[in-house]
């Protein structure tokens, strides 16, 4: 390669990381400082979600998933890194941008069914409320949303007069009221039984397919992976694994778990793998023809024998 080729290579535009992603988090760091103690909630998290995807973010308590959701909601600002949702840079938003973002770009669904809706307003009125906040007046949309989500019969009911599943489906309608591009849901089925949960997931999937909305569900329930296209696992403030759901040739749903390799080549090995082989401090890597082998730094006793 000549010097000229090198120079040309240097100025050539490379594809930017996550350029076309609908939701992008790049090396996201969030540190809470309270009374002189620093808590690192996110430690360089990377996340890419495409438009129209139905994604679940799972993780144990304290893994940083609520912090991630708050950042994606525009309620919290990361300490460092990049966060972009539907083209909006979440780090540089002003107060006015944040309000516009909440009104037009994202919709929310929370875990507690009763907390998603104003108790003294009917379903229709609850849906009209965010539209009114945003200054929109579409008289047909609320009823259409309820109809699409199968809760048209609840139009004039107040939250107390509805079941948990109905309340959550109305909550989805409220979240969709202002035609958002992304729906963020925090444990939306946490209070529901399996059957009702399936109804709610069905409604979310319908919302995704009908309106092309990207849906991000934060949950600690790994079973959710059966209901979504992709499940992203978070551990210790980083994305650790991804489970892809695809329909096999025989028509059965196949879920395959992958480890996440970040841009600088970092990889989180599953905890059960490391403990099974007693991997500690350092490992030995060997590049094979089609894979990389990982060994403990010192051979085990039984291997020597």
């Amino acid at each position: 390669m000549t010097y000229t080729d090198l120079a040309a290579e240097a100025v050539r535009q490379k594809p930017v990381f996550g350029e076309h992603a609908h939701i992008l988090c790049d090396n996201l760091v969030r540190i809470f400082k309270t009374d002189g103690v620093e808590v690192v909630a996110l430690q360089g998290l990377d996340l890419l979600i495409d438009r129209g995807e139905l994604v679940a973010v799972v993780g144990a308590s304290g893994s940083g998933k609520s912090t991630l959701l708050n950042i994606l909601s525009g309620l919290d600002v990361p300490t460092a890194g990049l966060a972009r949702v539907a083209g909006t840079d979440l780090l540089t938003m002003s107060g006015r941008d944040r309000l516009k973002y909440r009104r037009e770009t994202v919709g929310f669904i929370w875990q507690q069914t009763a907390r998603n809706l104003i108790p003294y307003l009917s379903s229709l009125e609850n849906i009209r409320l965010p539209m009114r906040f945003a200054g929109k007046r579409d008289r047909k949309r609320p009823a259409e949303l309820l109809d699409m989500l199968g809760v048209a019969h609840c139009a004039d009911r107040r939250p107390a007069q509805m079941s948990g599943g109905e309340q959550q489906r109305v909550a989805i309608a409220v979240a969709l009221a202002n035609e958002p591009q992304v729906i963020l849901a925090d444990e939306p089925t946490g209070e529901l039984d399996t059957e009702t949960s399936a109804e709610v997931f069905g409604a979310l999937r319908r919302a995704g397919s009908e309106f092309g909305v990207t849906v991000v569900i934060v949950t600690h329930d790994p079973q959710v992976s059966e209901q979504v296209d992709r499940t992203i696992g978070i551990r210790d403030g980083r994305t650790s694994s991804e489970t892809l759901r695809r329909v096999g040739d025989s028509g059965t749903v196949i879920a395959e778990e992958y480890a996440v390799l970040d841009r600088v080549g970092r990889l989180q090995l599953p905890r059960n793998f490391t403990s099974a082989l007693n991997l500690e401090r350092r490992v030995r890597l060997e590049l094979e023809r089609d894979h990389i082998g990982v060994w403990p730094d010192r051979p085990r006793e039984e291997d020597n024998e």
Binding site: L99, R102, N116, L117, I118, P119, L129, F133, A134
Partner: peptide, 16 residues
């Protein structure tokens, strides 16, 4: 407060 927090979350501006 709970209702207002929800409204704020649903896009109500501080002024509203």
């Amino acid at each position: 407060e709970p209702g207002f927090q929800l409204m704020r979350g649903r896009g109500a501006s501080p002024a509203q």
